[in-house]
């Protein structure tokens, strides 16, 4: 008994240490987001772990309101970047989910598209940069550069492997008796898919969509290559937040980083149970 109490204590200590390291960077960004400009780069003895004079100025600033401390004029406000991120991630998720789900169903039930699993794994495996030049040329040719729909299209393609593989494992697991009964009753095949299978898959569809959304929302590289001004997404916009007068706008960037971090963390925790399956391409189910 004595031994197990000690063991539990050690476990708690170790878990708390892990938690400490996991949280330090997050804590520092949150703290920075509420610091007034004077505390941004304070170092050594002046370094403040918790803002001495907490302020919302950083948030006001990135949304274009005048603040006392920051007299830099922003060409574009963060609202626009948030809109760009939101729009392209949502539409990209929609594309990936619609195309991926129907292809997964076609393969799982009708055995079409047997090349897709490997092709899509390869798509995921390749560094996006290795096809960036042709994509940039194609996007320029199709007038898709720096548009929300152009960004949505590439997001839909890039996350297609995830929606396809996730839904494929769910369809493969789903018992087929109900569908078969409906087919015998004379229900058309397409109606079986849309009216019977999809409603039964509402849970998996929702969690897959959230995972795909997180992945799209997290992109930096593609938006860096394919947007220039109008539709830059949050990460690209954040990286550009600096001025010739004050240099890096530490607090403003942290405020925006905090806003960007919130949706994926909430969604990620909500779909915890599906994360393993989603991120291992269905190789592992929880």
């Amino acid at each position: 008994m004595q031994r197990s109490v000690i063991f539990e204590l050690i476990r708690y200590c170790l878990v708390l240490i892990a938690l400490f390291f996991a949280m330090i960077p997050v804590f520092w960004m949150i703290s920075m987001a509420f610091k007034p400009i004077a505390e941004w780069t304070a170092s050594g003895a002046d370094l403040t772990w918790w803002p001495k004079a907490p302020t919302l100025d950083n948030f006001r600033f990135i949304f274009g309101q005048n603040t006392n401390a920051l007299i830099v004029e922003l060409e574009r406000t963060a609202g626009r970047a948030i809109l760009a991120s939101l729009l392209s991630s949502v539409i990209g998720t929609l594309i990936a989910m619609v195309v991926g789900t129907s292809a997964a169903y076609g393969l799982s039930r009708y055995n079409y598209g047997k090349n897709l699993p490997l092709a899509l794994i390869q798509l995921r495996l390749f560094p996006p940069l290795a096809v960036m030049i042709p994509v940039m040329i194609m996007w320029t040719f199709l007038n898709l550069v720096d548009t929300w729909w152009g960004l949505s299209l590439i997001y839909g393609i890039v996350t297609l492997p995830f929606s396809f593989w996730l839904m494929k494992t769910y369809f493969d697991e789903m018992p087929k008796e109900i569908e078969e009964a409906a087919l015998v009753e004379g229900c058309s095949r397409f109606r079986v898919f849309t009216r019977i299978t999809l409603p039964m898959m509402a849970g998996p569809l929702a969690s897959s969509a959230l995972l795909v959304f997180i992945l799209n929302w997290s992109d930096y590289l593609i938006a860096l290559m394919l947007t220039t001004r109008e539709w830059v997404t949050i990460p690209v916009y954040m990286a550009s937040l600096s001025s010739s007068m004050t240099g890096q706008l530490y607090g403003a960037k942290a405020a925006l980083g905090l806003i960007a971090a919130i949706p994926p963390v909430i969604f990620g925790i909500a779909i915890q149970k599906h994360l393993v399956r989603g991120l291992t391409f269905g190789a592992l189910k929880q």
Partner: peptide, 25 residues
Amino acid sequence: LLVPMMIVPAVAGYMFFLLFQSGGP
């Protein structure tokens, strides 16, 4: 403990950029 992997990588990069400043935490 799962939170770090859900942070947008670009934002994580910025977090560590801040942490590793020579006057940083």
